[in-house]
Design a protein around this nucleic acid. Sequence first.
DNA 1: AATATTAATGACTCATGGGTCATTAATATC
DNA 2: GATATTAATGACCCATGAGTCATTAATATT
Lengths: 209, 209
Amino acid sequence: MARKRRPAARPEEILDAALAVFTEMGFAGARVEDIATRAGLSKGAVYVYFDSKHAILTALVRRLADRVIGAAEALVEAGAAVSAEQTLRSLLGFIAVQMSDPKISAAPRLVIAESQRFPEIGAMYRDVVLARVRRLIARILEKGIAQGAFRDVAPEVLLRLCGGPIVAHMFLTTVFADPDAPGPAPDVIAKGIADMVLNGLKVRQETAT
Amino acid sequence: MARKRRPAARPEEILDAALAVFTEMGFAGARVEDIATRAGLSKGAVYVYFDSKHAILTALVRRLADRVIGAAEALVEAGAAVSAEQTLRSLLGFIAVQMSDPKISAAPRLVIAESQRFPEIGAMYRDVVLARVRRLIARILEKGIAQGAFRDVAPEVLLRLCGGPIVAHMFLTTVFADPDAPGPAPDVIAKGIADMVLNGLKVRQETAT
DNA sequence: AATATTAATGACTCATGGGTCATTAATATC
DNA sequence: GATATTAATGACCCATGAGTCATTAATATT
């Protein structure tokens, strides 16, 4: 076989290939050789760069999550000027749109699937990703309460109320997708969720601040 | 080996054993022999009652989901007399408590984990379980709107807003549980979620119906 | 008691795929 | 151009575990 020597580029290429293969076949269904072939390498070469199949998964999840969370943090940072409500709306919209991309939602899906067998990966996701999400939510909430715009709810509740619907939407459009009944577009859902998170379900006389 | 012949009881026993083993090791990590041993049988006997490892999983998920959904339907049925808000609160509380039991949340977790490789199981869950949840939510919503108590939101949005936080809570207390920082109790979370789903996050002058 | 039926066994087959390593080919160094 | 270094190969090993099936033991039937 023809050989190329480009060590610097390899890890990224392998992770790209791994994302594609994992997304198609799931972690258990993916063969390391599939990943290697897709990356234009032999199986042995993969083991030059990663210790095990799981090390590939871990690195992949880290990379995927880091990108999205980094962007989300920048977005909240940039929202320092505007109202807490507006920041929360943009954040929800951003995450909802991101998570509607199967290439990106693959990360949490893989983590959830594999953490049964390998709890470390669940712990890693919690410490690396969820901790940062918690911080974002807490910051927006504090600001909103300080401004008198938000009720004083527990951050853990708000985390579940904001993250949950997005995760639910992600599952409903990937794992539980019905080819015959396509669901609503992500931005429509994002707006619907944001409206409800902010205004609630009950009918009221509009006398908000 | 000593042998007992009790064909009628076997399938249930195998499913009980399968739940325990799947919960501990995940689907891929579980061996059919583990399940057999736990059920007090040999591996061969399992194949008398189930065609494959996957058939066991499918039957198990069906059974688990059916119980919970059946109870939820009864609860909504019983709530015909009370207000839509009250029915929604009971339903959220019931599901949240149920889903905080790892033996029960194992069903959706397994489905999500395996449907990457075996899309049929995702489709089954959608058609058998989620369809019924959709119907419950739609019924409560219609009633609430008819009574003038609820805003006229899309059922798909309400489904995500009610189901999502519960699912999120379930993941946060199973897959992403932090042994050092135990989360809030399920009923506390359920109430917090219900309050927010109904009232929203924004501060308002209380002038509700 | 003899015979038929079927629940249950457990040793077996066989495909699979993760991981290894001696070898080879491409680059770097002198 | 010779030598050293290391990226990459691919044949190989080996544990694993799903599923099979001839056999055996427990009940049912006569």
